[in-house]
C-alpha cells in the first residue's frame, strides 16, 4: 500500500522561503494547469495564457518573501495570475481600440484548445465550447472572473471572496447574476442536456 504524504501549499511556500527550491517546483507542478485554465478562460489565447502563467510563477519566485501565511497560498497565486490576466486584457483593449478600424472585427478568431477526447464528439463539442468561451469573453469583467472561479475552477465562495477581496454575500449574488447573463448569451445554443 502506497503511503501518501500530503504537504500543504503553505508548508511548501514556507520551505521555499527558507531556501528549498524543490518546494517551489512542487508548487509549480500543483498549480500550473489550474492557472492555465483560469487564465485561458480569461484571455482566450492558449499561448498568451501560458506566458501569463509563466510570469505568475516568476513573480512568486521573485516575491516569495512577500507572502505571509495570513492568506492561503492559492488565494495569493490566483490574485497574481488574475491581475496579470486583467492587465493583459486592458493592454489588448487599448490595442483593439486602435486597430479595430483596420480589421473591422470585435474579436479575433477563437482558437479551440487541443484535447485528448475522441474526434467525433468534437464537431459539436468544439462548437459548443467555442460558443461558451465567446460568451465568457462577452461577460463584464466582474462576472467573467466570478464564473471562471466558481463554475470552471470550482473554488469555494470563501476562497473567491478572498481572491477578489469582496464579501461572501457579494460573491454569491454575482455568481447568480453571472449565470443568468451567461444563460442569456448562450440561449441560441441547442439544448442537449
Amino acid at each position: 500500500m502506497q503511503k501518501q504524504i500530503t504537504v500543504t501549499d503553505e508548508e511548501l511556500i514556507a520551505r521555499f522561503q527558507a531556501g528549498t527550491e524543490v518546494a517551489y517546483i512542487e508548487l509549480v507542478n500543483r498549480y500550473k494547469d489550474r492557472l492555465l485554465n483560469f487564465v485561458y478562460r480569461f484571455v482566450g489565447d492558449r499561448d498568451e495564457a501560458e506566458d501569463i502563467v509563466q510570469d505568475t510563477f516568476l513573480k512568486v519566485y521573485k516575491n516569495r518573501h512577500a507572502y505571509r501565511e495570513v492568506a492561503k497560498f492559492s488565494t495569493w497565486i490566483y490574485t497574481i495570475a488574475g491581475n496579470l490576466a486583467r492587465s493583459e486584457l486592458r493592454k489588448r483593449r487599448r490595442h483593439k481600440t486602435f486597430s479595430m478600424s483596420q480589421i473591422g472585427l470585435e474579436d479575433k478568431e477563437y482558437d479551440p484548445p487541443d484535447t485528448d477526447a475522441g474526434p467525433e464528439s468534437h464537431v459539436s463539442g468544439q462548437y459548443e465550447e467555442a460558443e461558451i468561451q465567446r460568451a465568457i469573453r462577452q461577460l463584464p469583467d466582474q462576472f467573467r472572473t466570478i464564473i471562471i472561479l466558481r463554475d470552471i475552477q470550482e473554488l469555494s465562495y470563501e476562497e473567491i471572496s478572498k481572491i477578489l477581496d469582496i464579501p461572501m454575500g457579494t460573491v454569491k449574488s454575482r455568481v447568480n447574476r453571472a449565470r443568468l447573463k451567461m444563460q442569456d448569451l448562450l440561449k441560441h445554443l441547442k439544448e442537449n442536456g
Partner: peptide, 29 residues
C-alpha cells in the same frame, strides 16, 4: 437550462501546459 449550463462549465476541457513548461520557467529564473 441553468443547471445544464453550469454542468457544461464544470466539464469544460481541461488544458495542460506544454511539456517544456518547467524547463522554460527554470531557464527564465
Amino acid at each position: 437550462k441553468l443547471g445544464s449550463m453550469v454542468k457544461k462549465l464544470n466539464g469544460l476541457a481541461e488544458l495542460q501546459v506544454s511539456t517544456d513548461f518547467n524547463e522554460r520557467l527554470l531557464s527564465k529564473i
